[in-house]
């Protein structure tokens, strides 16, 4: 059984409309309510959703075609076979009436003019996607992001669509990658190191504070492992008070990809603190001469081998503080 998809009437005096983009390919499985295609009239652009579930068996009209209202655009069939053998069962087809778009058509004249004034079809399509998303609130279309953000996301194996889902405005920039909401790829690694040399250092010095030394060692280890990267170290005490302890370089907040929170548990019986957020967290706890360091991070933002490298470097510096001078 097949259903016909026809060009909907979207305005009072509208005779034709432009098929801007198909969101599905022939053969794709379709759920009722999926965005199926995008149309543009002289007044507005909008997405049309599928009214039936099934498989998109045939697309009859290419993207970029201007077609009259009511013209057959595509066929949806119950089974996937139709799309391969080309057979359609029009006899039993229900007339497919597209759903009303779920938002008011855009009446903003300026946007309309903008759409019409763009000559390059690819620009036009991108703009249409953008306007559609912003105004009709759908989740389809190309993700708009800066080249740097896209490149970094690819390197990190991170899907930029997640940012869209979390409501961050497009186009995305590099700093937005740090704004990913809590995600399940949070990890913690533990390390135990001898605290003898480190404790001796604190004993010998009259001015050295443990928290400050932890911060300094952390930022040096970070700079050593990630050469061009900038780190802000925030110290959080067991009362919940936080303050910025040290920064590798003075830069304002928009470029901060890396903020690390340090928690000193050495004076407590607690052995570790894991945050389960995207924030980098280091907790330090001590039992006799043994220091336990727990490093929490999000593997989407910091790769596991890099985390290992960093923690190892920090451990080496604590065991042998002379490394801090080199």
């Amino acid at each position: 059984m097949s259903y016909e998809v026809k060009m909907p009437q979207l305005g009072m005096n509208q005779d034709t409309a432009l098929v801007v983009a198909w969101f599905k390919k022939e053969g794709d499985k379709i759920e009722k309510g999926d965005p199926l295609f995008e149309v543009e009239t002289d007044k507005a652009t909008m997405e049309v959703e599928a009214q039936k579930e099934g498989y998109l068996s045939k697309i009859k009209v290419d993207e970029g075609s201007e077609v009259p209202v009511g013209q057959l655009l595509a066929l949806i069939s119950d089974t996937n076979e139709d799309s391969h053998n080309g057979q359609t069962d029009l006899a039993g087809s229900d007339a497919f009436e597209p759903m009303e778009p779920d938002a008011e058509p855009i009446n903003d004249k300026s946007i309309e003019n903008e759409v019409q004034n763009i000559e390059d079809p690819s620009d036009r399509k991108e703009l249409v996607n953008r306007i559609t998303r912003n105004n009709v609130g759908s989740a389809g279309g190309k993700v708009l992001a800066s080249p740097k953000a896209k490149f970094a996301a690819k390197e990190m194996g991170f899907d930029l669509a997640e940012l869209r889902n979390s409501g961050i405005a497009e186009p995305f920039h590099f700093a937005d990658l740090g704004r990913v909401p809590q995600s399940p790829s949070f990890s913690s690694i533990y390390m135990q190191v001898s605290a003898e040399a480190f404790d001796a250092l604190i004993l010998k010095s009259e001015t050295a504070k443990r928290s400050l030394l932890f911060s300094k060692f952390t930022s040096s280890a970070w700079s050593f492992v990630f050469e061009d990267s900038f780190l802000e170290v925030i110290f959080k005490d067991t009362n919940g008070e936080s303050y910025v302890e040290t920064t590798t370089e003075a830069v304002s907040s928009s470029d901060v990809a890396n903020t690390i929170t340090l928690i000193d548990l050495c004076d407590t019986r607690i052995s570790a603190y894991e945050t389960g957020s995207n924030k980098l967290t280091l907790s330090f706890s001590q039992l006799r001469n043994e220091l336990t360091i727990c490093f929490s991070f999000n593997e989407r933002i910091l790769k596991f081998p890099d985390a290992v490298k960093f923690l190892n470097e920090l451990g080496a510096r604590i065991e042998d503080p002379i490394l801090q001078l080199i």
Partner: peptide
């Protein structure tokens, strides 16, 4: 001219 060379040769580093 300068903007275009940057876009061509440093594209993947641009955040704006």
């Amino acid at each position: 001219e300068i903007a275009s060379r940057i876009s061509e040769k440093a594209f993947y580093y641009l955040d704006a």
